[in-house]
Write a protein that binds this DNA or RNA. Structure first.
Lengths: 192, 192
DNA sequence: CCTACCGATCGGTAGG
DNA sequence: CCTACCGATCGGTAGG
């Protein structure tokens, strides 16, 4: 029983790597089987089908982001600090799940209509939560920006791209990356 | 003769839309043929093969970015202004090529080894050119940042994500988007 | 630009 | 978890 579970987790882990490296559509069940070390048909003893793998990866990450959001919403503090904490939490999710983040960010569109709609709704909710934070900052007189949609999407894209260059074995810890990015996004490049 | 050329251009345009919408690997030549309005086999009268379509899209955009870079390099000005001009040029390339930008950013990894290496080299050269600008700004005492790699990659990701939300029929012109993003990246969210 | 194909590979199932 | 398959679809070619 525990062997079945761990085998399933192992398959999902290898699928995550392959989906990231080759893309979901270009990864065949035979590619996956070979990487796992079994026949393609045997994969189906552990998972329902190919899309179940994608779905599991995308929603696991979405849940991680939503958990961070929920925890943040329990706290009350000035917007700049709140945003910094949110950035830290976001960076932590990504640096802890580099391959899955890449899949989460780029392969979700291959979900079929029903999970796709649910997935998009979760992303939207997360986006709105960040928009609320920076709107709050504007009301507090701490932030300035013309268009909060552009501000948040640029912020998010800066955060999301981390999976592309972050090296866990490198010199920067997740906290340092978060610190660095917070500073950049809050204060910009210009020296004061 | 001119009909052959324009047909080819038309096929590439439709391929660009499909590659963006479904991804390169998930777009079949039969999908493309149907969208163009001919049989799959007939596509091959106009293009060599599927990868030639991808290659043409990716390198056309890469060339557009490199052209912008070359033009910028002829000019001498303080780094903050230089960066603002570079951002404007970058935003112009993307907003003028929304579908192709998405393909350029996400589908290039499906190129075969040789063009892939060339493509990566072009991107690297462009990245280095931006790094030089912000390094120059640091030397001028105008910019501050801890890690120029992170600064540039965050900057680039903010710029590159534009294709995802920019609506040509919307209220913002490419110049306004560039202005807005320049301000955000140079000065941050924080009100001075 | 079409008809008629090709060999290869796809996701997935049956039955053990 | 394997062998043996299935029908469908893939990129691409031959020949007109």
């Amino acid at each position: 029983m525990s062997e079945v579970v761990s085998r399933k987790v192992q398959i999902e882990g290898i699928a995550t790597e392959l989906f990231r490296k080759k893309g979901y559509a270009a990864t065949s069940m035979r590619d996956l089987a070979q990487a796992v070390g079994m026949e393609a048909a045997s994969i189906y003893s552990h998972i329902k089908n190919k899309e179940a793998l994608l779905s599991s990866i995308c929603f696991r990450l979405a849940d991680a982001f939503m958990d961070a959001k929920k925890e943040m919403e329990l706290q009350t503090m000035p917007a700049p600090l709140l945003l910094q904490k949110a950035i830290e939490a976001h960076v932590r999710v990504i640096t802890n799940n580099l391959d899955a983040s890449a899949v989460f960010l780029h392969e979700w569109r291959h979900l079929s209509p029903e999970p796709l709609a649910e997935f998009i709704a979760l992303r939207k909710a997360y986006e709105n939560y960040l928009i609320r934070i920076i709107q709050q900052g504007k009301e507090e007189g701490k932030f300035q920006f013309e268009d909060e949609k552009i501000a948040v999407l640029s912020l998010l894209s800066g955060l999301n791209w981390i999976y592309d260059w972050y090296k866990p074995e490198g010199k920067l810890s997740p906290e340092q990356v978060a610190q660095n990015l917070s500073n950049l996004l809050l204060n910009g490049l210009t020296k004061k």
